[in-house]
């Protein structure tokens, strides 16, 4: 605290300097957002159409090639976007060392969920 007080205001404002990075994260989040507009609208419309359908009907629908492709694309874009968005939320509100732990857990969870979802879709599509 005392040492912090001896630094000049400019030195404190400069901190560790510019990362000279950041546009990739911002750009990827927006590209994925654009991709998610048609993908999520297709998904919501399909789910509404599938309301109340039983397991067999649902499996038949998911096995259609278009459905499988759209579903995998949705999962990839969704969880990539989900990894980027909450990262900013965590960085905004968590400042201590817990920030790094939260970021690692969040990112790994997104990878795990995306993989599980894709494998489930492929299992249904190509399974016996």
């Amino acid at each position: 605290m005392d040492r912090q007080h001896m630094r000049s205001p400019l030195a404190r404002a400069m901190g560790l300097g510019s990362a000279k990075k950041g546009v990739e994260h911002w750009w990827a989040e927006r590209v994925l957002a654009v991709a998610l507009i048609p993908l999520t609208l297709w998904f919501v419309a399909s789910i509404i159409a599938q309301t109340g359908s039983d397991h067999a009907t649902f499996i038949t629908w998911l096995r259609m090639p278009v459905t499988t492709i759209m579903m995998v694309l949705l999962l990839v874009a969704l969880f990539h976007h989900t990894a980027l968005g909450p990262q900013v939320v965590i960085e905004d509100y968590r400042h201590a060392g817990s920030k790094f732990a939260a970021l690692v857990i969040m990112r790994l969870t997104c990878f795990g969920l995306a993989t599980a979802g894709i494998i489930a879709v492929l299992h249904i599509a190509f399974g016996g």
């Binding site: 397991h55 579903m71 969880f79």
Partner: peptide, 16 residues
């Protein structure tokens, strides 16, 4: 929606 995405994966895993 992040939490909703978890439900989506559970739902797909159950269907599989």
């Amino acid at each position: 929606l992040s939490l909703g995405a978890v439900v989506l994966v559970i739902w797909l895993l159950a269907a599989a």
